[in-house]
Structure formats: structure tokens, C-alpha cells
């Protein structure tokens, strides 16, 4: 037990610093991927609500594909596929041999694209949940579309979307563990390295589970507080997703 604590701690024998850095990297990857997903999701939701028929179909197709393919495969595709393309380009310039690309970038891109598809659905649902009267009330004042979006639509939709977005953030954190296959030292990679060098896999994978649990629990709490704050003034809290 004491030995375990020493190994997990921050002393000279301990892996604490490595695990902490891994956890921070997980947060960084997740945050970038989530932000990308939010941007893509907003764009797609808008395309599906207000786009022309071909644009709508494009957004819909993106959603179907992203929800139909394993996350791991998408990460592989971006990481190894990206390497393939980078190597081919480098070859044109006379470089021989494979070119490394950033696991961080490939991972963020892959998870961001995956998450964007689901976030689009969440946002679209939230938009449709806005009472039509509210929008009419804004329109009748002569408000322009460009004023209506930030002043009326976005705040209302975000409020409804918050539980769904919270769930998405949780998924993104868990999906980020898959980025470890690119060699990026995030939480899972960090505990794998520690597990291998100490030959105590159970201890370190358990610690890894603890890191993720801490992140998902704390951020779940923060989302719940945000939800609660955003619900103030509304008669009834809506169900949690």
C-alpha cells in the first residue's frame, strides 16, 4: 500500500508528475476537439435548419457517416492517412521515408469531426424547442436575422442544449483516450508507460481510471451548475439527457 502511494506520488520514485501531465494533455485534446465539434455542430445545425436542399443533404450525410463509423477507425484514418499524405507530399520535394505528423492535431481533428455530428443534432433539437412565438415576437419588432441570432436564438437554444452538450463533453473526454494509439502522451498513454516500466499494470490502469473519473465527475458537476444557473427564471427545469 505504502509502495503504491510512493509510486503514484510526486517523489523521485513517483509517477505523479507524468500522470498529471497526461491528465492535462487529455484535457487539452478534449477541449480542442470539443471546441472544433461545437463549431462544426453549429455550422451543420444551421445548414440543416436554413440551408438549401443540397447543403442540407450534405450536412445530413456528414452526420450519418460520422455516427456509423467507429471512433478508433476515424482516428487511425486521420493519423495514418495524414502520415501517408504527408509522406507523399514530402516525396515530391525529394524527402525519402515516412514523415511523422502530430498525434495531437490528428486526434483533435478526428474527435472534433465525430463530436460535431452529435453536437449538430443536439443544437438542432434545441433550436426546434424554441417556442415559435418567441421568434415571431422578435421578428415583429423588425429585428434582423443577424441581430436575432446572438440576441434571441443562441441564448435560448444554448440553454436547452446544455444537458446534451454536457453529455457530448463527457463522450469527448472518453474518446480522447483513443488518441493514445498515436503515441500522444495523454492520460492513458501515461499510465500505460508507467504500467510497463513498473510492471504494475493493475495499479496504474486503475489510477488511469481514477483520472478520467475525476475529470468526468468534476466537469459533470460544472455543467450541472451551469444548467442550474441558466434555468433560473424558467418555471420548470427540463429533464436531464
Amino acid at each position: 500500500m505504502d509502495e503504491s502511494l510512493t509510486l503514484l506520488g510526486f517523489g523521485p520514485e513517483g509517477w505523479g508528475q507524468v500522470l498529471l501531465n497526461g491528465g492535462l494533455m487529455t484535457l487539452a485534446v478534449s477541449a480542442c476537439a470539443f471546441a472544433l465539434g461545437l463549431g462544426l455542430g453549429t455550422l451543420c445545425a444551421w445548414a440543416r435548419i436554413a440551408g438549401s436542399a443540397p447543403v442540407q443533404r450534405l450536412a445530413q450525410g456528414y452526420g450519418v457517416v460520422m455516427r456509423g463509423v467507429p471512433d478508433l477507425l476515424v482516428i487511425y484514418l486521420f493519423y495514418f492517412g495524414g502520415r501517408q499524405i504527408a509522406s507523399a507530399v514530402a516525396k515530391q520535394f525529394g524527402h525519402v521515408g515516412p514523415v511523422e505528423i502530430s498525434g495531437f492535431a490528428a486526434g483533435c481533428l478526428a474527435i472534433g469531426l465525430l463530436s460535431g455530428a452529435t453536437q449538430a443534432e443536439v443544437l438542432r433539437g434545441a433550436f426546434h424547442a424554441i417556442a415559435p412565438g418567441t421568434l415571431e415576437a422578435a421578428r415583429v419588432t423588425g429585428m434582423r436575422r443577424w441581430t436575432m441570432f446572438p440576441r434571441i436564438i443562441a441564448p435560448l437554444a444554448l440553454r436547452t442544449a446544455l444537458p446534451g452538450l454536457g453529455n457530448q463533453w463527457q463522450s469527448v473526454i472518453k474518446e480522447s483516450a483513443l488518441v493514445s494509439v498515436t503515441g500522444l502522451v495523454e492520460a492513458l498513454r501515461a499510465v500505460t508507460v508507467a504500467a510497463n516500466s513498473t510492471e504494475l499494470p493493475f495499479l496504474f490502469f486503475l489510477a488511469g481510471g481514477g483520472i478520467y473519473l475525476a475529470i468526468t465527475t468534476i466537469s459533470g458537476l460544472l455543467f450541472r451548475i451551469a444548467e442550474w444557473r441558466s434555468m433560473r427564471g424558467q418555471a420548470a427545469a427540463t429533464g436531464r439527457g
Binding site: I173, A177, L188, T192, A195, L206, G209
Partner: peptide, 22 residues
């Protein structure tokens, strides 16, 4: 709470590599 709060990959590792520790 435990199984939904952690990545599936770490659950697989814990069972495949972790149990062998004992």
C-alpha cells in the same frame, strides 16, 4: 457511474493487462 465515467479502452486494459499483475 464507474463504467460510464471511464473510457472503454482503459476498462479493456485493466482486465487484459491489469489482472495479470496478481
Amino acid at each position: 457511474y464507474i463504467f460510464r465515467g471511464t473510457p472503454l479502452l482503459i476498462q479493456i486494459f485493466l482486465i487484459y493487462y491489469g489482472l495479470a499483475q496478481f
